[in-house]
């Protein structure tokens, strides 16, 4: 039924933003994960969003645009070498590599994701309120 579509829309937004928050958490948690080669180092992950027009509905021109995560891309930031001969993972030359994760960038991303999530929650609760009011019509 068409009135309940708004829940699908806001719900898809919430799950997409939640995935974005998860990738931020993963990136921050692995910011100091060392590796002995630059190839083996953890790479920052970021989701790519895509809006999905529901084609089943397009016939009636009522396509609803939900959002989905098209894929997760790994960043190609170069690994940062550290000279730490005492480190258990150090290679022959005494270097370990850490992922070049920018904590500030990740924090900004986190704030943006949580704000977007809040917006979706607000849409959801307002729409729910409106529908409940309509249910009370004529009482």
């Amino acid at each position: 039924m068409s009135v309940f579509k708004v829940f699908d829309i806001a719900g898809s937004g919430m799950s997409a933003q939640m995935l974005r928050l998860n990738t931020v958490a993963s990136n921050l948690a692995n910011a100091e994960t060392m590796a002995s080669t630059p190839e083996a180092v953890y790479r920052a992950r970021h989701p790519v969003f895509k809006s999905v027009l529901n084609e089943m509905e397009m016939a009636g021109n009522q396509g609803l645009a939900t959002v989905k995560v098209q894929g997760i891309v790994e960043s190609d930031t170069a690994a940062v070498p550290h000279y730490m001969p005492g480190h258990p993972l150090a290679n022959q030359e005494g270097y370990v590599y850490s992922p070049g994760i920018n904590a500030i960038e990740e924090m900004a991303d986190m704030i943006s994701a949580s704000r977007s999530y809040q917006n979706n929650v607000e849409v959801l609760s307002t729409s729910k309120e409106l529908l409940l009011r309509t249910l009370q019509l004529g009482r």
Binding site: V3, V6, I9, G13, A65, V67, N120, V123, S127, L130
Partner: peptide, 20 residues
Amino acid sequence: FERRNQLLAENITNADTPNY
């Protein structure tokens, strides 16, 4: 208003979607 509510919800949900 119900249709507009849905449209604006779509806009807010797709606030971070490239090319939307």
